[in-house]
Design a protein around this nucleic acid. Sequence first.
DNA 1: CGGTATCCCTGAGGATACTG
DNA 2: CAGTATCCTCAGGGATACCG
Lengths: 121, 121
Amino acid sequence: MPIVHKATHDPKMCQKMLLPVRDSLEFLNGKWKIPIIIALSFGNRRFKELASEIEGITDKMLSKELRDLEQNQLVKRTVYDTVPVKVEYSLTDYGHSLDKVIEELRNWGTQHRKRIMRKSS
Amino acid sequence: MPIVHKATHDPKMCQKMLLPVRDSLEFLNGKWKIPIIIALSFGNRRFKELASEIEGITDKMLSKELRDLEQNQLVKRTVYDTVPVKVEYSLTDYGHSLDKVIEELRNWGTQHRKRIMRKSS
DNA sequence: CGGTATCCCTGAGGATACTG
DNA sequence: CAGTATCCTCAGGGATACCG
């Protein structure tokens, strides 16, 4: 199904379609949010677990992105009052609202990679 | 439906899910590809038409992104042998394979914007 | 363990001018 | 009309060190 069903030159209409798409991409952009979300979709994780499972990420980036994800309510941060302190991160229900988006991105990426490989062979 | 159905700590499995998603995001990233694709989904366009319909884009960026989209077979460039020369850009069938991805991004973006608005009121 | 603080660098993209 | 060529800015993110 096409995105648009009737030819038009109205820039306002473009804008209206564009804004939410840009919102999503702006949010998902950057190297680390998706890796973090996928890692957490495998189960709850502690800070250092994430740091070692997500290849290449620095503590600074992990910390920053987790804070951002928490503020956007996609991730929940739970502090356990033990010694030493234990912090656990988990995906919220809202975090799972990205499942469909990620799945579409994955489908297209898989398919596109095949196509590009084929071309350059 | 969850992305993953069984808890695991296997980083290899994360990687395998991650790669195609990163491919997609890497490709869609940047400010201009989605605006161009959406504009073209409204019908075929000439260079200057795109330049004026896509707010804020420079000739340089438009030219560069169109070349990239053409190389990836999402967009077709047709040169008409008139004086002065007329160049028309159109979405290929493959270009439309992004429809579902864009739709999901739009859905999530719309919904997320509402959620964020509500929170900050 | 669970992070911060600093410093630094690269490249995406903007501004402007020019060409066939 | 349909682009190129140059120069420049700035923010995302890396490296490294440190803290409670």
